[in-house]
Amino acid sequence: MTAHTATPPMIELRAAGLTYPGPPPVAALTPCDLKIEDGEYVTVMGPSGSGKSTFLNIIGLLDTPTTGRYLLDGFDTAALSDAERTGVRSATIGFVFQAFHLLPHRSARENVELAMLYQRVPRRRRSQRAQEAMTRVGLGHRLDALPTQLSGGERQRVAIARALVGRPSLLLCDEPTGNLDSDTAKSLLDLLSDLHRDGMTTVVITHDVQVAARGQRAVTIRDGVMSEPGRRGDDA
């Protein structure tokens, strides 16, 4: 990883941990170090309740670590105000959730455009970019469908289009295949691999070994403790 010293890593956790104040205090994530370089495909494995979600919330700027530092794209996120944190979240991170989280009464296009709403992208550009993103995930023909008219796989593709359309540097997926059958899951993982090949930094959180096998690196969290089999020497 010495080749990347000129540019900071995409994600860098320095002894970052999160303890929920008690009583009794609960250590959701014990302080850990992690670097994820630009363009990497990292999977985070662990059973439910292990601290995966806490990890996702921290790197997704939805929660702040109580100890240590989190550097996103090289700057310290602790220094950000709430409005700035939200701005960075909107501009840098694309989220994909297990439950899709599509607005039920809005068309696929409107759902995708939602991601650009808080970036003040002008209307016409929004529509055009939403169309491009939908085409990218293979749903260019279903722009005006309502989420209820889409299959599970299609819904998750719309969610990925929504994550992509904000032009993030990091795609953060939380159990993206958790609600999908295995065939649909496979084709969705193929899509994520495609996006990674195109240069997208991808972090997938999962409890599924098969999903984890798709990444270049696999990080494991168990009982709030992060470990990375085979890379211990590098991170130290």
Partner: peptide, 18 residues
């Protein structure tokens, strides 16, 4: 902040507010 490796990051206070 744009996709795919932006230029070296400036200070945090110049980040676009949402």
């Amino acid at each position: 902040l744009t996709a795919h490796r932006p230029a070296p990051q400036p200070r945090a206070d110049s980040v676009q507010r949402s």
